[in-house]
Structures are given as C-alpha cells and as structure tokens.
Write a protein that binds this DNA or RNA. Structure first.
Lengths: 343, 343
DNA sequence: CACAACTAGGAAACCGGTGTCATAATGAAG
DNA sequence: CTTCATTATGACACCGGTTTCCTAGTTGTG
C-alpha cells in the first residue's frame, strides 16, 4: 500500500535547521529566497529540505505573517458551468503559489446573506475574495469587504467599482454586435427576451440590443420585447408571448442560453423551424447551447481568463492597476442563425 | 460607506483577557465551551467578546491544535451541476462549524495529476478531502491520502473502500428498477447506451441494466447495446447505431443525461416520436434533463445529502461508522417514457 | 477544626514559522 | 596588520492561540 508514514511527524523548520547545522532563520531565508545567503549554505539547506521532505506549515506562516493565503469565492450559482470554469481559471492562476481557493455558495434571497458572509469572512480571515454576478452588484457586500479589510474583486458586465477591484466583460458592445450579425444576415425584425429587472447584466444586454437596433435604424416594437428571469420556464413564457404574435419577428436575441433553449422549444411547438423561420442568439455559451438542436449561436464570456486576471489582482495587488479590467466576450456562431425565409 | 475599521487591529485573545481581567486561558476556555467555569466568569468574558467583536484567529488555532479546519474537494468535473451541488451540500453540513471548503479541480488525463495533488495536500495540510467520481476510483490517489495522513471520503456508485471512507449510491439497483419501470409500461425490447469503459459507474449501470433484463426474462441483444463516453457527441453516435437498426428497441436506458439528450435528437431526426415511438431513461438529473423536450425521465443521485454525510464522516470521524454509507437514488418520472406504440 | 478532595483559574511553555537586531565573518582600505 | 564596511548568520521575541501543570479557594468529611 505504498510507503506509510502515518506516525512520523512532519518535519519542521527546526528539524531542517538541526540537520543542516544552521539556524531556523537561515532555513526560513532559503524558503523565502532571500538574496543575502551564500550559495553553499543555500545548497546545503536545500538538500536537507529535499532529503527530509520538508514542507513549510502554511498555518504557522499565516500566523507569523499576519495574513493567510486563502482566496474566497462568493457566488450565488448563476450557472454551474460558469462557476466551475471560474474555479478552474483561478486555479490556473494560483497553481504555483501557496494560495488556495475556498468556496462559499450563498443564497441571495436569504435575508441573512450578509450576516452569513460577514461570519465567513471574519472566521476565515481570507486574503481576498472574488465576487461573482449577480451578487457582485451588491454594494453592501462590497462595503462589508472594505469594512473587514478583505481585498475583493467584483466580476461583472459593467463598471461597478474602480478598476482595481473589478474585472468585467463588454456585454453591451457584444450584444450590439450580435444585432449587427443578425442584420448582416438580412434580419430587420428583431425581438428581445430580457433578463430579470435589477440585474446589471440584464440591463447591459438590453442596452446593447437597443444600441444595435438604433445603429441600424430598425423598428423597435414593444410587443417583440418580453421580460424573463434567466430561467427555462420564464423563457417558455416569454417566447410564447412573442411568437404567438401574428406579426412576429424573424429573429430574437435572448439574454441567456436557458431562455434561448426554451424559445427553441416554443418555436418548434408552433411549427417554426429554427433557424429558417426564426433565428435565435443566446448568451453564456452554457453547455446546453451546444446540446440542443440546432446548436445555438451565443455569446461566450472569457470566464477562465477573467478568473485568472482577477486572481492576479488579488495576489499581486500592487500592480493591479496594470492589469486589464475588461475582457471582451466573443460571439460563437453556430447554427441557430440564418437569413430570414421570406423577403 | 459603513463603519470603517481598516486600521484597527483585530482584537486578539489577549485584548479580551485584559479587558475582562482574566487570563487568556480562561478566554480560551470560554471559546471552547469548557464546562469547568463559573457562570459569572463565562458571562463576563462573553460580554467582552461581544463588545470587542473578537473572533478567534483560525490560523493560530490551527497551529496550536496541529490540525486545521480546511476540507478539500478533489474533482475532475464530471458534471458541473453535480460538483456545485456537492459544494452546497458540504456547505450545509459545515455552516456552523469553523471548517471551510477549498476546491481543487484536477485533470485526470494529466500525467502529473498525482504529483499535483500531492503538492496540494502537502502545502495545505488539509484536515480531509472529498474525492468525487471518477477520480474517486483511483486507488493510487487513496493511497496517497493515507500516506500523507489526510482523511478522505470517496464518493462513488459502489463499494470502493471500507464504509468509513466512502459514501456511495445504489446505481445498480436503481437502474434495475428503471428497467422494471419500462417493463411495467409494457416494454420488452430495451436497449442500453453504456458509459465509458473503466468507469465504475458505467460498470454498475450496465450490470443493473442486465439484472433488470434477466429479472424479467427479456431478450438480450448485443446490437441494442452501444458504448458511449458520457458526452453528447458519443451519445449521438451510439444512438445512431441503435436506432438505425431495422429491428430497433422500443425503449433505451442511457447511462447519463447528456447522451440521453443526444439520443432524443437522433430519434427526432429519424422521425421517431419520444416517448411514443421510443422511450428513454437517462441518469443524473442534470439540468438538461428538464430542459429538453419531452422532459427526461432520469435517475437522481441525492448528491447534497451525500455531501453532507461525507462531511460528517470527515469531521466527526469517531462516529463515522454510524453514518450511512449508501444513499439511495431516485427515479424521476417525467415524460420520456410511455407504453410502446405497437405491441 | 483539621485535612483531604475537588474546583476554578493562572503562569509558562509550546505550536512552527517570521521580524528585529546584534554579532561573526569577510573583504577593502589605510 | 589594524580598522572599517559590508555581508552572512544567529539569538530571541513574537504572531495568537492551546496544553500542561500548578496554586488558591471551596466544599465535604471524620
């Protein structure tokens, strides 16, 4: 069953110091790559470290340095794949550091969300936290982080805070260019299924849509514009509303992929072929986008890259202002857009 | 902007002791609920703690106790929703403790996965780790945890380890009863799309399928049995194979929901109505199961409950053997199963 | 009332690192 | 060959808790 060492105590810095015949401060200097060490001392200590398999105790370091090496992720699961990709992105960034990522799913509908988070931050004394949308839009939460002296980065779709505390994408521009894409394909009658009120992302996507409409001088029709909740069910309802119209649009932009998938079902039930009778563009590039038929043209956030940048902002905070705050999304063209059938 | 206290040092146990006029050991006793304290002492100290807003430093405790309060989650993203639900389940279990959950996505195809994990475990000195399938099936990984003296719980679909290190579900039985369900509906010609070779879950699900077939004396036909990789694309291929047969089955059990969704597409493309011409049962109850049409009958792992049990096994390890190791899955009946059209 | 037995609380060392500052070793200059 | 800088290293206190062990106070018993 492999080499067991259950009862052997982990070697400490004192063990290394004793075996190497130096003081523990010297060992500490080796670990921390202090420049003022003679090469042969360094090598001697390093070989002892290797021989003993010594690994510094992170808790002791945290105590002595008065800061730990834990990054937190606060999120209210907007989308499982996004959260997971974010975790992976952070991991990529901290792989060769001593940092670790601790997660904290929260419930934004709970009245004591802020108390829960306060409790969490106080107990764990995190080095910093990432805040994912939609709770990244919560100003009280940001204030709480400042109060508790916890570094933070808010992820979002628009400028929520000063750049060093923020990593955002360009929802508004990319949605406008999604409209461009529809127009290029020949559409002039374009509908919108919107995200829930109060969500910054929903607002940005709507504004981007309207920018696009205006840019091309297209007709805006209130009845082609339905509210949604970013859920599949709300998408069904919204699509029913728009597609039952006698004079329906030839394309719709839907503010997330779940609602876009729902719209496809509604279209199919009404005997409309996607994309021939109805073109659809979604948003998120969630797994469902490529698992429905036809595969959905959608917008992809560069979530892993955003996570990495955010991690660097927390860790190397001195050059946080050198890092970009805004990473562009991308329109992923699949098969849910085609030229309109008639005209 | 709320009350700032950026430059105020966090109060320590010494501050509390001084203000309360007791020794720090007494404060420590209050925190740790020692029974041998006079009530008025306890109350005095507690009121000082509240007044100062004192919160014990977890790193200092970890150092003194020679164990920390970090639980790790090792996974290779089999399914984002599952991983996230697992995280939430763990959080529920540790909400009122001092534990936190640190995540570590890994790549099981990377040749240095084990080294990465070793590095992680050594650096972080976790209290214990959860290992999600499929890497929970890796014996070398379990051996590594034992070697590093890190408690672990392996999640799985079958007995991988002794019960105190394991939380599993009953894939085999539940799949057999999914077959029962199909038989009750009148099916006698049932196909199988299998998971990838080498996956314990794939094996269990196949065996459960075969149990069900045998139990009802149904015909086993090799051409109704196709391999898959748990991916959408592999599901397309497998379903093509089975549904192109002149003499195709009237129902199929598909080893996960992604492949089941793929099978629905194939069926539709071939002009087969689900469920009238073809009944389908999936496995996982992933979001896609309720977002496709018709909604998929599938098997749901009680993943949050499993996560909670697993957390208790790690934390209260003394009574780990009292906790259940096996939590039953559930067949979620939706609309992808109906009696076969013609006898 | 003397003495044990038990209780509540404190002093000091310790966990395993890091910071500060003093000192030994080295090299350069006079 | 001193003397002074400069560099490399060590001694020791400290981070903020816990453990061990001891003392003083309280209660019970003969």
């Amino acid at each position: 069953m492999g080499s067991e060492r259950r009862n052997e105590r982990q070697p400490t810095i004192n063990d290394v110091a004793r075996v190497a015949g130096v003081s523990k401060k010297t060992v500490s200097r080796v670990i921390n790559r202090s420049p003022l060490l003679k090469d042969d001392t360094r090598q001697k200590v390093e070989s002892v470290i290797a021989e003993l398999g010594y690994v510094p105790n992170p808790q002791a370091r945290a105590l002595a340095l008065r800061r730990n090496f834990l990054l937190g992720l606060l999120h209210d699961n907007p989308n499982a794949q996004t959260v997971l990709n974010f975790q992976i992105g952070v991991l990529d960034a901290i792989r060769d550091t001593n940092f670790a990522l601790v997660v904290r799913p929260v419930n934004r509908h709970s009245p004591n969300m802020l108390d829960d988070i306060r409790d969490f931050l106080e107990k764990q004394r995190l080095y910093g936290v990432f805040i994912l949308p939609p709770i990244s839009e919560n100003e009280e939460l940001a204030a709480l982080c400042r109060e508790l002296d916890c570094a933070y980065v808010r992820m979002g779709s628009t400028q929520l805070d000063s750049p060093q505390y923020l990593v955002e994408s360009n929802d508004r521009e990319i949605v406008a260019s999604a409209v461009d894409h529809l127009v290029e394909m020949g559409h002039r009658r374009i509908g919108l299924i919107e995200g829930p009120e109060g969500f910054r992302s929903a607002f940005e996507r709507r504004e981007g849509f309207l920018d696009g409409i205006r840019r091309h001088g297209l007709e805006y029709r209130a009845e082609w514009h339905a509210p949604g909740q970013y859920t599949f069910d709300s998408g069904i309802e919204a699509a029913e509303r728009i597609l039952s119209l006698p004079d329906r649009p030839s394309a719709i932009f839907v503010s997330n992929d779940e609602m876009a998938a729902a719209s496809m079902h509604v279209a199919r039930n009404k005997g409309l072929l996607v994309p021939d009778d109805l073109s659809i563009i979604g948003f998120d590039d969630s797994p469902i986008a490529s698992h429905i038929w036809p595969p959905l043209t959608t917008v992809r956030w560069p979530i892993r890259e955003m996570a990495s940048v955010a991690a660097h902002k927390l860790i190397d905070s001195e050059d946080a202002d050198q890092l970009p705050s805004r990473l562009p999304s991308q329109l992923i063209r699949r098969s849910s857009v085609a030229p309109p059938r008639e005209k």
